[in-house]
Nucleic acid binder design. Sequence first.
DNA 1: AATGAATGAGGGTTCATTCAT
DNA 2: AATGAATGAACCCTCATTCAT
Lengths: 184, 184, 184, 184
Amino acid sequence: MYFCKRLLTYKMTEKQEKILNSALELFAREGYNATSTSKVAAHAGVSEGLIFRHFRNKRGLLMAILAEGDKKLKSLFEDIVLESDPIEVIRKSIILPFSVPESEYEFWRLQYKLKWEIEMDYSHKTEPLTMALALAFVKLNYESPQQEAEFLTLSLDAMGASLIKGSMNNSDKMKSFLLKKYGL
Amino acid sequence: MYFCKRLLTYKMTEKQEKILNSALELFAREGYNATSTSKVAAHAGVSEGLIFRHFRNKRGLLMAILAEGDKKLKSLFEDIVLESDPIEVIRKSIILPFSVPESEYEFWRLQYKLKWEIEMDYSHKTEPLTMALALAFVKLNYESPQQEAEFLTLSLDAMGASLIKGSMNNSDKMKSFLLKKYGL
Amino acid sequence: MYFCKRLLTYKMTEKQEKILNSALELFAREGYNATSTSKVAAHAGVSEGLIFRHFRNKRGLLMAILAEGDKKLKSLFEDIVLESDPIEVIRKSIILPFSVPESEYEFWRLQYKLKWEIEMDYSHKTEPLTMALALAFVKLNYESPQQEAEFLTLSLDAMGASLIKGSMNNSDKMKSFLLKKYGL
Amino acid sequence: MYFCKRLLTYKMTEKQEKILNSALELFAREGYNATSTSKVAAHAGVSEGLIFRHFRNKRGLLMAILAEGDKKLKSLFEDIVLESDPIEVIRKSIILPFSVPESEYEFWRLQYKLKWEIEMDYSHKTEPLTMALALAFVKLNYESPQQEAEFLTLSLDAMGASLIKGSMNNSDKMKSFLLKKYGL
DNA sequence: AATGAATGAGGGTTCATTCAT
DNA sequence: AATGAATGAACCCTCATTCAT
């Protein structure tokens, strides 16, 4: 594994965090390939060499960001996965993309970008959500719970993408439309 | 506009086409930023300089590809947009992503990649489809035809993405599920 | 093989030759590792990128130099190898290191440097000389012609090294001493 | 002078010795320029900074190694220089390169490497040997004792180099050949 | 004595692009 | 139309070295 062990502990030097934040911002804005390590260093107010001392690689830097991101993702899904009421599972899932605070758009844009830029396998990350939804649809006696769950997951993912790209005009309407569509 | 005038005419030299095809393939596979003009030239069996003679820029090369792609996209939508039977509009829309031949995956992968890599505005391209669907849903007395159309468009886009990435296990099931969902 | 094909033909661009000459000079003076490609480029009055266009690698540049050097080496040995008179073979061999013009010291210093710096296999290059000497010693009924030849080759190599390093005080005396030692 | 004072005393910390040994090994194997201080530190299991605390410089580290090596060299020559019997002087000299244990090849390879890599003046180190030989040849009434001594020194040096590089096939034959050549 | 964070300069190499032919 | 020589800027990364702890 590439990413620095320190990341997994709670101790991280100030500069290390600056690098990580700058990289997240720039990767998310310009893309991974289009962002040079020197730009990251400059943005973080740090010598370029330090990036490599802490993260070995440009790739290692990316992995460190993704590792941190995965934790965020898991905690987001946790609330849904642990929910026992199927109605609530669906409601919370639908609400999810619409309740992401703008401050986190950066992180999500990066996820979407990387999904395509570096052919990152992303589908397994949403799997817990799909499974929770499938279970909920089973409980609610839907005819094809698995397809239903997969479809909803993909659609919500698409909603999220649309929101982040700013190409959805009326997100509130879309949210309530979806809730109604699933009888909520 | 950057792209070479020749593109708009129907005459294109053999080498010009080779460049275009190679660029499409490489951009789609590796991404725009990660593909160097020298790689394109080598893959096309052409001198690097020729790319710039014909397309001015690396960006111009990209634009030329996209221009050609837009035509393909339009012709795909045409059949749907011109359909008057609302049921057929919906059916054809749903079927669309599932009936893209694998030989065209490359082109579509490029579209998806660029959507994120160069923050390409893509939503307007699907607008004709959304409008056709909205009209269909109006005719069929759906409650929120506009949201319905937007939602379906986004979802189908997501289906397409999933198909191309190879992360959809059972596309046939998903297709028939969708058709049934819309009462077809 | 790394080195540019052009080297083997007689056509070489002016700048290509400048690069080669500069590299020879600098590699010989400072050593291969201690000489940066940027130094070579500056010394040759050429952009650094050009080095890589023509020789692919820093290593490729080195190989190109060595390839040219090998030809020089072979032509030096040719006169000895083709000699049929055993006395002459020995005489010419002994004289060889002492008759290298100072203008070629650079090239030879590079050979010696590389022999150690990059663990270059060098012994096979002197093999033709050893064989010619062995044959001569056989003809002259020496007791251990093979050892005699190997010993002389190694010793002459050492003479050459000493000469090039400037650590031999009286090369003329040494030359005549050697000639006398072998009865010439 | 660069090298750490501690070297000249007989007390050296464990880590200091580890550094020295690692540096010797790596310099000998890869060359001085091609070996980074970080590699040395890693190989020695020591922080990189410690190298500079103890040896000031990368160069200082090298000097420390060479200083230690010089002692080894002197003790090797001592036995020859103190010998009064001229026959024995020559015999011991000839035997010298052939009796270096393989465990010391590393050290000698470094000497040879540095001779060329950093244009290290090496000839003065062999001077005591040359002088001892010259004296021996005088005693034995050789015609040109000085040349004879210089020649033998250089040749033996070349033997050593050949042995270390592994390019001498039959070292035993060569040794006895040499002994016979000098009437021993 | 020893560490590890931090740096600035420079390493080799690739880049998109221009130009003479 | 087409080539290939040529460039300068930027690329990712490693270097020897310093410093606070």
